[in-house]
Design a binder for these strands. Structure first.
Length: 436
RNA sequence: GACCCCGUCGUCUAGCCUGGUCUAGGACAAGAGCCUUUCGAGCUCUCGACACGGGUUCGAAUCCCGUCGGGGUCACCA
């Protein structure tokens, strides 16, 4: 029998990073087993559910590359179905009416949850207050989460329920529903939660939490997928950079850890950098443009130029969004000097004439290529008989405003003659003005 | 509080099931150095953990018990 799993978000917000990982583990399991990955929308709470959220969640899943084979199936379109099952239970006296709601008579016995990750977990329904007769239909006629969930999982022939740890206590309740309805019970796999730096639930306070936020910050989807897969699971030889295809090959649900993992954005950044380095610059151009657009940032730089910029910068950008900071001078009219850098490297008044002369010579270049630029600058350095770095570093600050950048000559080439010369002359004037 | 889950470097983890090869391996971060064209990039090195206490055993990170710690659930929300 082929594997059938589902991801069942409720459309009450955007796709949370923790939910995304649940979706990912379901997807990886389905793809590894050559099974079916189904999407189901748990919108039984008519008040909190919104269509816009559903759309955002679907977009995020697509963006991550988690494609589904069936669905999305909306629970709100199946209210009569759940009601039929509730009536059936009522009729069999397995459930009863209580102030307008329908409650299931919970069996007073021990329930054993068989879990692929945790093994067997025993709950004593007789001894626990939390297992009192369960509401399956609310007084407004809509089904509760546990009821709709069980009915759908059974009807959709779900073979493995892979969901967050926080559902462990729901499982014995759901088992009671399976039993009452005579449904076959699927296998369960409860994956550990993702915690914030403070060991509590990952929340807004600690930074980005939704997939859309990560996208707008300029993370690559495959980097997020890679990082999320490594949280609670690890491939052979403890490899770190594992693209989605290989993740699918190696994934094993029983090898998922039992303990909660803390979300660490440093590692995400590092993985993202690894993918950025390898990423096709043309693809990055598109992604960068959409980030700029969202920032309300416009630039006249054309695609070809932006591609050249990204080719150079992508090896040291943690996120695409960072191009806006590291490469700021490329997109604005005026350079903004980093205070410490200017103080340290633009302090020498002789630099003013150096910059003027270098600018003059660069301006004469017919083709503004890295090699030609290097020739000019190194030539000037040789003439003056001064250490190379005493010119190279100040030029970097003059042109970019800061001390972090790709190699200077390639950088100037991509910056363009006009801007390079302009920034050098501006710096020369600035240095002179500082002397007064 | 009750019930359930979990506990290896600061963080993610390998090892645990099938005790010895573990003076516990890798990665991120941090620190140091190198790259004399910088750097948040690259290379090299360093720091750093089996929560604690009892057992069992010739031998325990690995098995058992307890303690402590963290998390989850206890809704007509999902």
């Amino acid at each position: 029998m082929s594997v059938r799993v589902r991801f069942a978000p409720s459309p009450t917000g955007s796709l949370h990073i923790g939910s995304a990982r649940t979706a990912l583990f379901n997807w990886l399991f389905a793809r590894h087993e050559k099974g079916v990955f189904i999407l189901r929308v748990e919108d039984t709470d008519v008040v909190r559910s919104e269509e816009s959220h559903m759309k955002t969640i679907l977009d995020s899943l697509e963006w991550l590359g988690l494609d589904w084979d069936e669905g999305p199936l909306l629970q709100s379109s199946r209210f009569e179905l759940y009601d039929d099952f509730a009536k059936k239970l009522l009729h069999q006296d397995k459930a009863y009416l209580d102030e307008g709601a329908v409650r299931l008579r919970m069996p007073k016995k021990k329930m054993v949850v068989k879990d692929l990750i945790h093994g067997e977990m025993v709950f004593d329904l007789a001894a626990e207050a939390q297992f009192e007769d369960l509401v399956i239909t609310k007084s407004n006629g809509t089904p509760t989460y546990n009821f709709a969930c069980v009915v759908d999982d059974a009807l959709m022939k779900i073979t493995h329920v892979i969901r967050g740890d926080d559902h462990i206590s729901n499982t014995p309740k759901q088992l009671a529903i399976y039993e009452a309805l005579n449904f076959p019970v699927p296998l369960f796999a409860h994956i550990p939660l993702i915690l914030g730096e403070d060991r509590s639930r990952l929340s807004k306070r600690t930074g980005a939490t939704s997939i859309t936020e990560f996208r707008d910050l300029g993370y690559l989807p495959e980097a997020i997928v890679n990082y999320l897969a490594l949280l609670g699971w690890s491939p052979k030889n403890n490899r770190e950079v594992v693209p989605p295809k290989e993740l699918i090959e190696e994934f094993s649900i029983v090898k998922v850890n039992k303990n909660a993992a803390i979300f660490n954005s440093d590692k995400l950044d590092w993985i993202n950098l690894q993918y950025m380095k390898e990423a096709d610059a043309k693809r990055l151009v598109k992604l960068t443009r959409s980030i700029f657009e969202k920032e309300g940032f416009s630039t006249r730089i054309d695609d070809q130029h932006l591609e050249a910029i990204l080719t150079l910068f992508k090896t040291r950008l943690k996120t695409l969004r960072e191009l806006l900071e590291m490469g700021r001078f490329l997109f604005t009219e005026e350079v903004r000097y980093d205070e410490a850098a200017a103080k340290e490297l633009l302090g020498n008044p002789k630099l003013a004439s150096d910059f003027q002369e270098i600018a003059r010579r660069l301006d004469e270049l017919s083709s503004f290529e890295a090699k030609r630029i290097e020739g000019v600058i190194r030539g000037y350095i040789a003439e003056r008989n001064i250490p190379a770095k005493e010119i190279i570093h100040p030029v970097r600050v003059a042109v970019t405003g800061g001390t972090v950048s790709p190699g200077l000559f390639e950088l100037l080439a991509v910056t363009g003659k006009e801007k390079t010369v302009k920034n050098l002359r501006f710096a020369a004037d600035w240095i002179t003005s500082q002397q007064k």
